[in-house]
Amino acid sequence: MYVLILSIRLHAPATAPALLARLDAASEGLPMIHSHLLQLAILARPLDPQVIWRICFECEDDYQAMLLDPVWTAQVVPLLGGAGGVEVEQIFYRRSLFAAPFPNICQGIWRTLIVAVKAGVAVAQRRQFEAEMQMMPSYIGTIRNWALNPVLSSKGSRSWSYVWEQDFDDVNGLLNEYRMHPIHFGLVDRWYDPEHPDHILDARRLRLVCNAPESAIAPPRRSVQAQN
């Protein structure tokens, strides 16, 4: 599965509902989209609303085909052009490393953190960072499903390195146990802390949180044919 995440930050709050409607309508004309999550971000700055669009493709060719599709170029790209006072980040990656022990989670919270590794960081440090991030779900029970994947390409204000996604039942699971667990502040945070000698990540990060009717991380459920 390949994924494109768009983070669209608006400087005119009133335009958010219209943008959501137009993107949703455009998605209907893009049959190469396998599934998608299109939501207004929560826990974001209220005067700077953020639209999150997470689009799944079965293969990379489908993603490339979408970029060339007239519906994308004529209906979506103009909305992302910045003329309407928007800041857009586009991150494309292959969702290959993930665990989804709770694939049927409903009406939960999808949260992602997108980070950039600083220049010159050794491969061994990156591997250690990846290993410790993957440990977090086994200690923090409110992380229901998770994925950690390197970015294949990105567009926007800068290039990005990793996408760290989690499903939670609700925001409390994110704001309380995830935030307060000692593995978070006592082990993993050192990669992020600019004054820690081990830190490898740029201080600028992209945090996205939204309601998720179903898991965005779990493999898409196959439709079940009625049996006669």
Binding site: R179, M180, P182, F185, D189, D193, P194, E195, A203
Partner: peptide, 29 residues
């Protein structure tokens, strides 16, 4: 407590001056 940890961390973000000298924690190191 852990809340204090995050208050400490947010206050120490690189590039954010913490006193009138404009020196941030990461800059000091």
């Amino acid at each position: 407590n852990p809340d204090g940890w995050w208050e400490m961390r947010i206050g120490g973000v690189n590039g954010r001056p913490l006193d009138t000298s404009g020196l941030g924690n990461a800059d000091w190191w």
